[in-house]
Design a protein around this nucleic acid. Structure first.
Lengths: 119, 119
DNA sequence: TTTCTATATGCGAATATAGGCATATAACAT
DNA sequence: ATGTTATATGCCTATATTCGCATATAGAAA
């Protein structure tokens, strides 16, 4: 019960839904790519990623200075699996989500030198 | 986005998950049956039912003095449909849920004259 | 070492949520 | 009409959540 509630709460927030939606677009993203894609502060990105991680929704992997986050596609709990699927099907016409994806493609494509020189 | 968040929030609470789980056991239940099954106050039952109703998870139907609530199985939003399915598969071994179901079967079977003379 | 860059986190303020008590409303019975 | 039962809701308090600021930590580079 506790787990289920934690998981549901983790996607009951607009910022975190947006994070999941951009993560579903790529194999993995580092925090600075996510904050640029969503146009949010670093604190906000980090804290919400922590919540998604604690829920089991995303995995993190340190690579030097960068931490790469990815959707947990390996051995997710059944709840996570179903909800990832739900989110994958959802909001694909949403204005805000489309903007995030657009910014994401720009950030990842151009490297965006000012921040995140990781690519 | 707003709808999705409202729906996820509606099942991010133990009381409401318990309500959905007992409602999944029957065609419909009135408020007093639900409050007895979960052993909670009337206020708590009513308020949480309202939240589930606003999310589109449950339907209500007045029958005289009683209001019968049921899972929205007719034309639920895709989100609701998937999440109902998820909840149907979930927590079937959960101690608390089993207790709720046990109390439910007693309440509905015996009529429990002290409250809810609706049956 | 010091100095960057990337990320995490403690604290505090604003806001949201849950649930109790009292009360309101609705339907029915007398 | 009055009373009784079922349900809903306004107000209040306790608790939780979100997020910004400042700061801490971690790794790479100089």
């Amino acid at each position: 019960m506790r787990d289920l509630i934690r998981i549901c709460k983790s996607i009951s927030d607009e910022t975190r839904i947006r994070i999941v939606k951009v993560l579903l677009e790529r194999k993995s993203l580092c925090v600075c790519e996510i904050m640029q894609a969503l146009n949010i502060t670093q604190t906000r990105a980090s804290k919400n990623l922590r919540i998604l991680k604690d829920a089991g929704f995303v995995l993190d992997k340190r690579k030097g200075s960068w931490v790469h986050y990815s959707i947990n596609r390996k051995m997710p709990e059944p709840y996570i699996k179903m909800l990832s699927k739900l989110l994958k099907q959802s909001l694909n016409d949403d204005e805000g989500i489309l903007k995030d994806k657009k910014r994401l493609s720009e950030v990842v494509k151009l490297g965006e030198v000012s921040k995140c020189k990781g690519r």
